[in-house]
């Protein structure tokens, strides 16, 4: 159902895309709907190169989620939010939340899931509630210093490989987690590291919705 919704959303969007990109978006959507996510990714990337005003970035990101490449998906979602903020919808936010969840960015996931709610239909709504319940269980107690350390370490790793957006994601999570502790463990350090990054992800919520 969600694949079909993506396909329908895609059909609605392609009217504004250059003619050369349209067949690739449609072919990508077909592959996506039929579960061939690697093929879908290729077609969406070709469409992106032919120019789609940023719409293809959303579908590239969704395909990456389906392929289990959560960190790449997060970067793609960030690009999409900057390039085509009007193209986002609740279903794409749900995929974005899944990418956050898979990358252990639970606060990021929860923020997006809260915004999605039931907006993408009852079935997704049920999944949203289930995921949010899982996340709520995680945060029943204050995060441990060890878990916050992990986000700092991961941020340092991805920053060293030239992925500032991803590093920012991990540091923002570290900031959020530190805020859940009375001692604000490594909060100032996380904020300082964020300030030094050359690029930050687009805000998760608050963008235009079609």
């Amino acid at each position: 159902m969600k694949r079909l919704a993506l396909c329908l959303a895609l059909l609605g969007l392609t009217a504004a895309t250059p003619p050369d990109a349209t067949p690739h978006l449609l072919q990508g959507a077909r592959h996506f709907r039929e579960g061939r996510f690697a093929n879908a990714l290729v077609e969406f990337k070709v469409a992106q190169r032919l120019g789609t005003d940023g719409e293809a970035d959303w579908y590239i990101a969704a395909s990456l989620v389906k392929l289990g490449r959560a960190e790449e998906a997060l970067e793609a979602f960030s690009t999409a939010r900057k390039q085509a903020p009007d193209a986002r919808d609740a279903l794409l936010d749900y995929y974005h939340a899944l990418a956050c969840y898979e990358a252990r960015l639970y606060l990021c996931a929860d923020t997006l899931l809260d915004a999605v709610g039931d907006a993408s239909g009852p079935r997704i709504g049920e999944q949203v509630r289930k995921l949010r319940a899982d996340i709520a269980v995680l945060f029943r107690s204050a995060p441990t210093p060890g878990s916050i350390d992990w986000y700092h370490a991961r941020a340092a790793q991805v920053r060293a490989t030239g992925r500032p957006v991803l590093a920012a994601h991990y540091l923002e999570e570290a900031v959020g987690l530190a805020g859940k502790r009375e001692d604000r463990y490594r909060l100032a350090e996380a904020r300082a590291a964020l300030g030094k990054l050359s690029e930050r992800p687009a805000p998760l919520v608050g963008g235009a919705s079609p």
Binding site: H24, V42, K45, V46, R49, L50, R69
Partner: peptide, 14 residues
């Protein structure tokens, strides 16, 4: 465009 995608993906190790 497929060549561009293929080279980028191969370089990324996918």
């Amino acid at each position: 465009p497929y060549v561009e995608v293929a080279e980028a993906e191969q370089a990324a190790g996918d």
